[in-house]
């Protein structure tokens, strides 16, 4: 048996009408002068209206707005009920005006509090939500682009070479008795192809996560990188130990991009990488701060190349940032900051 408050609206409305009609019949049978069933009808109508209002209130999203809606609904219900009582009890002095006035003041004050300018904390939170929404979307987008690139690199590189490897080996197998010399040449070719496939795989793997970074962490990965660059790189200080993997990876690729720019564009004779502890005055507490500088010609800007831009986006998703000072004529200094605690 379904309880009446879970019936569909029409059924509940029908029940109310039936109850109203029943009381009317009882009144007609008893022959009393006073038409008392109107109070029963008023009660039924009030219950139905209250229920509808409550449902409407519950549709408002939870929070301060819902409480305001509840307040409004209660005030409106009381005001309408008062007017109805005034009408049913023979009019006279329009006394509900006092109740309505009081309710209006209560509701008005509530509405004012809810709609007044958001306080500082709320504004900070709103900005934060905006930033998070933006950086999260970018992070997801760049991840998708990155996966697509890896897929394409594997497809065009190692996979294609392995296909050709299988082909050449198949041909060699056919020739091995008929023409051993040609077969031997093909096996040699197959070996070269296998080595090229390995080279391709190594390049792809390095672009995802350089192995030294997984093995040894940021400090040694940057040292290994510096050893391979044609420009001498001085490394000062050391990063904090046990950095989270995403921070380490983002920092590595940021440093690698900066140093690559130094080599490619700046005619620098020397570059430096400096890890520094965050000064206490910094707005971001407990951050990893790295400065990459060179003595080259300057004129670098994140707006000019896609490289620095991509790095900046990657850092943003970790709440980090990248600042470039690079006047024409040099020197160039890039500061990378990544917070370590949320």
């Amino acid at each position: 048996m379904i309880p009446p408050w879970q019936w569909p609206l029409a059924a509940r409305f029908g029940l109310a009408v039936a109850l109203g009609a029943a009381t009317w019949l009882v009144w007609a049978a008893t022959g009393v002068d006073e038409f008392w069933p109107r109070w029963v009808w008023f009660g039924l109508a009030t219950v139905l209206a209250a229920e509808q209002l409550l449902r409407w209130v519950l549709r408002v999203p939870a929070g301060r707005r819902r409480w305001l809606a509840l307040d409004g609904a209660v005030c409106a219900l009381i005001a309408v009920a008062d007017i109805a009582i005034w009408l049913l009890s023979g009019r006279g002095l329009f006394w509900p005006v006092f109740t309505i006035l009081g309710l209006s003041i209560v509701f008005g004050a509530h509405a004012f509090i809810v709609n007044r300018r958001p306080d500082d904390r709320e504004r900070v939170l709103t900005e934060r939500v905006d930033t998070l929404t933006r950086t999260r979307r970018r992070a997801v987008e760049s991840q998708a682009t990155e996966l697509k690139r890896v897929e394409r690199d594997l497809h065009d590189g190692a996979q294609a070479r392995l296909v050709s490897l299988g082909l050449v080996l198949g041909m060699a197998q056919e020739l091995i008795h008929r023409d051993p010399d040609a077969a031997a040449a093909m096996v040699g070719e197959a070996r070269t192809t296998a080595i090229s496939a390995l080279d391709d795989l190594r390049t792809v793997m390095h672009s995802i996560q350089p192995p030294v970074l997984s093995d040894r962490g940021l400090a040694d990965a940057v040292r290994a990188l510096a050893l391979d660059l044609p420009v001498p790189v001085d490394i000062n200080g050391a990063p904090p130990p046990d950095l989270p993997v995403p921070v380490e990876t983002a920092a590595y690729f940021a440093i690698a991009e900066c140093l690559a720019n130094t080599v490619k564009h700046s005619d620098a004779t020397t570059a430096t990488v400096t890890y520094s502890p965050t000064p206490h005055a910094s707005p971001i507490p407990h951050a990893l701060r790295i400065e990459v500088a060179d003595d080259g010609g300057g004129g670098a800007s994140p707006a000019r190349g896609t490289g620095l831009h991509g790095i900046t986006q990657r850092l943003e998703s970790l709440d980090g940032d990248l600042r470039v000072t690079s006047p024409e004529g040099g020197p160039t200094r890039v500061t990378i900051t990544i917070p370590l605690s949320p």
Partner: peptide, 10 residues
């Protein structure tokens, strides 16, 4: 190794 680094060689 699957990759070589001067750092390790050193």
């Amino acid at each position: 190794s699957q990759y070589v680094e001067r750092l390790y060689a050193r």
